[in-house]
């Protein structure tokens, strides 16, 4: 083997070593994650049912008689699900404001919220507020049907509807939710704002719970 050929082979071994090191470097080379607006973050993440805004009307006996027997119900209600105004303020300056509503084409699914908002690190007063935009005060009669005797079919249905309405109301978000907290956000730290279904309030969490 000539010296020139051997030199090429040595160069080949060097190239292979260089390639292997480049492979490793390309495999683990660090990347600084860009922080768009602020080096800390408020993350809103929850799922909750919106309140239903209903208008109910009491049917007359004649109207009831026109309905098929299986559809007869004294109190007939129609409505939509409420919209809410979400506002986020940091140190009394508003950094986000948005109207939120239930999912699905008819907006009858739960509100599923996920927002990440960059904020500057440091001692911050963070206020997250969700307020219902639509009024639930109905123009029509929304009172429960207490006139119909409970031991009749109509009464049984009326009772079941009332239970269902109450259950929905219990599950729905309250008309106003507020989380107002003073926290110390370190760079890169996240304040998670979630909705506690049991307590029906907003909660804030960081690596350690926000008091």
């Amino acid at each position: 083997m000539s010296i020139a050929r051997m030199a090429w082979h040595v160069a080949g071994v060097a190239a292979a070593i260089g390639g292997a090191l480049a492979l490793r470097e390309g495999s683990v080379h660090p990347w600084a994650i860009p922080r768009k607006s602020g080096d800390a973050q408020v993350r809103l993440s929850w799922s909750a049912r919106p309140e239903r805004v209903e208008q109910c009307r009491r049917l007359s006996d004649a109207e009831l008689a026109e309905l098929p027997p299986h559809m007869r119900l004294r109190l007939q209600c129609e409505g939509v699900f409420a919209r809410y105004l979400l506002t986020v303020r940091v140190d009394s300056s508003g950094i986000a404001s948005d109207t939120i509503r239930g999912g699905g084409l008819r907006h009858d699914r739960p509100i599923r919220l996920f927002r990440e908002i960059g904020v500057p690190s440091g001692q911050r007063r963070v206020k997250v507020e969700v307020a219902r935009l639509d009024s639930t005060s109905a123009a029509g009669d929304t009172t429960e049907d207490h006139d119909t005797p409970g031991d009749t079919l109509l009464g049984f249905r009326a009772g079941r509807e009332a239970d269902e309405r109450q259950r929905r109301a219990r599950e729905a978000m309250p008309a106003r939710l507020v989380l107002d907290t003073l926290i110390s956000l370190a760079p890169g730290h996240v304040l998670l704002v979630a909705y506690d279904e049991t307590a029906r309030r907003l909660t804030g969490r960081m690596a350690r719970s926000v008091p």
Binding site: G26, S27, P30, W31, I33, Q41, R205
Partner: peptide
């Protein structure tokens, strides 16, 4: 390469912390 320069294991992900940088497999 694996024996001499093994791949490091970055820290466990923490949902409440956005790391300044991560070692990326480009």
């Amino acid at each position: 390469l694996s024996v001499v320069f093994p791949a490091p294991l970055p820290p466990e992900a923490d949902p409440f912390v956005i790391p300044e940088g991560v070692p990326v497999d480009w």
